[in-house]
Nucleic acid binder design. Sequence first.
DNA 1: GTCTATAATAGGATAGAC
DNA 2: GTCTATCCTATTATAGAC
Lengths: 204, 204
Amino acid sequence: MPAALDATEKAEIVSRLFAAFRDHGYEGASLADLSRVTGLGKSSLYHHFPRGKEQMAEVVLEQGKAFIQSAVADVAHAPEPLKTRVDKIIAAFNALYAGGKNPCVLGRLSLSDAGPEARKLGQEIFAIWTEAVADLAAESGLSRVQARQFAEDWIARIQGALILSASTGNCGPFERAMKPLSDLAAGPASPVGRAASKRRHPPS
Amino acid sequence: MPAALDATEKAEIVSRLFAAFRDHGYEGASLADLSRVTGLGKSSLYHHFPRGKEQMAEVVLEQGKAFIQSAVADVAHAPEPLKTRVDKIIAAFNALYAGGKNPCVLGRLSLSDAGPEARKLGQEIFAIWTEAVADLAAESGLSRVQARQFAEDWIARIQGALILSASTGNCGPFERAMKPLSDLAAGPASPVGRAASKRRHPPS
DNA sequence: GTCTATAATAGGATAGAC
DNA sequence: GTCTATCCTATTATAGAC
């Protein structure tokens, strides 16, 4: 029974809420679930989050926003070689999504009915994510419009790959989805999709 | 008060359940919601679907499976020019997803906790969808392995684009996601992503 | 800050009349 | 086949002791 909840403990609680919403969605995660995973009674949860489940979802999205800011946006603009920054970002996503085995809490909460504040946060996160990746793409030589489309398409592909692997267990789409970003730092701009180099037979 | 529910009326009910699950997810669509959108009392719903909400989700997925079978798989193997088949499939998805404005009921129900039968149905639908698209890609000249990856990556990109547009309102990612399939029928195999043709400045 | 206990309501599901 | 009425449980949320 800790007298006060220090920053570390608070972060641990939010991290467990994060995993619960990620794995079960907003409507699918009940207060009983959230109580169990955090080890706190319902009343204690309400002590920390007076507005209840909705606020818990918002705090989880705040953590997601902080992740994108620090592990993507800040890294993208760091004074390091492009390849280094790109590799760091890919490593961060590989960890966050466990190589494709974890769903995306942002994708799930964005669709669910978690209230207007959560909605706004989701949009902000996608915006920060998109801008950061677009900056990398532009740096690698794409026009501003192309870079923005590259970013949107790359993020979309990741989100969809996580749905597929959650349903089918196949992480291949997620692994391949990392490649276009990786290719930004290596040679001519590659498209979001895998380069289709070899044809078995030419089109008639 | 119709004496019996003919096939048309049944299809109409399933169609409305489809829209409800698509827009609110499995956990997010309450029996009260489903009762309202179908115009049937709860008891009437249980008359048609004795196993309740879970069965309703399964029936909705059956409809999704039928859609993929008829509008994608059957079309893909029809005796028509490749371009014709591809255009028909794209038109079908444009209608299903309203140009990117509708979420994907398959993507939503696949993640939710709608029971083992629904899970299995989701996997089957993704499998049929993947095989059909892979056949088209192989026909256009890709190797079997490349064709399967093309299909997985294309489907992932669509699923993710629908999440993005649901959150941000931007349908651009969905519209661009259609292009790789369209390109299958026009010239050399294009990748899943947009071809990054022009560089503003060559990589150093 | 955490707990037990409890309210208040919504959710899924059923009974039985018509 | 549909309805009204009801049941039971889970869910969100609060009260108040410690």
